[in-house]
């Protein structure tokens, strides 16, 4: 099951914990992967770890031109882009009353607009191939909201509505578009939380623990597989029961 041999996958934010785990899972299932991110060193390190079938494509997602070029570079490096995982994301938290236009727009630009550009950039190839998998990494806060994250939550909820709309348009061409919405996952981002903060968060998580990056990767692997061909426009919540949606 879930054999991606011969498939080519582009993963953004592959220098981070979740993105790295996603790339590794797709690679282990046989896919060739293009690792994108802003920090080159972790991308190179991951590529070296994966060995063959791994390409490094650094990209700053706040640079519109670079984002438009990325799918082309990935297709040149691998031959096609059959699977696109939009995982990259940033936060600029602030209470709403103090949130600046810049904090709002930078988060929307990187999280939502770059996702849109990348989806658009891979669509032609997927339409021709009559096969494609797009997995957009949303967040539990896109569905529940979170104080201090009006911008982030808006961007993540926006991904869900956009994904459903694209899914409608291209379903008849064998292309699926889905979201995975992680809850609290152990990453460098959540490592910064204090023990008290973590304990507070975990009181709201029935599973009683943080999730692991590998558990997000497994959800992405499923949605990227041939077996998930009849699943489109949905959001797979991976959050330990924190929000049962």
């Amino acid at each position: 099951m879930f054999d991606l041999t011969g498939k080519n996958a582009l993963v953004t934010g592959a220098s981070g914990g979740i993105g790295g785990a996603i790339a590794a899972a797709l690679h282990e299932a046989g896919a060739t992967v293009a690792l994108s991110g802003t920090r080159v060193d972790p991308l190179e390190a991951l590529a070296a770890e994966l060995g063959e079938r791994a390409h490094v494509l650094p990209c700053n997602l706040s640079d519109a031109e670079a984002v438009t070029t990325l799918p082309k570079q990935a297709a040149e490096a691998m031959g096609s882009v059959d699977v696109l995982v939009n995982n990259a994301g940033i936060t600029r938290d602030n209470i709403f009353m103090r949130m600046s236009d810049e904090e709002w727009s930078s988060v929307l630009e990187v999280n939502l607009t770059s996702t849109m550009r990348l989806c658009r950039g891979v669509m032609r190839g997927m339409m021709k191939a009559r096969w494609g998998r797009i997995v957009n990494i949303s967040s539990v806060v896109g569905a529940t909201g979170n104080p201090g994250q009006a911008n982030y939550a808006a961007s993540k909820a926006g991904m869900v509505g956009m994904s459903k709309s694209i899914a409608y348009e291209v379903a008849s061409r064998g292309i699926t578009v889905n979201c995975v919405a992680p809850g609290f996952i152990t990453t460098a981002m959540t490592e910064k939380l204090t023990d008290d903060q973590k304990t507070g968060i975990l009181t709201n998580v029935p599973a009683g623990r943080m999730g692991e990056a590998g558990e997000i990767a497994a959800a992405v692997l499923y949605l990227s597989s041939a077996e998930a061909g009849y699943v489109t426009g949905t959001t797979l919540h991976v959050n330990g029961g924190m929000a049962m949606l």
Binding site: R124, M127, K128, E169, V170, S172, R173
Partner: peptide, 9 residues
Amino acid sequence: SLDTVELVM
């Protein structure tokens, strides 16, 4: 509408 896009392609 998607067919027309594909025709152009």
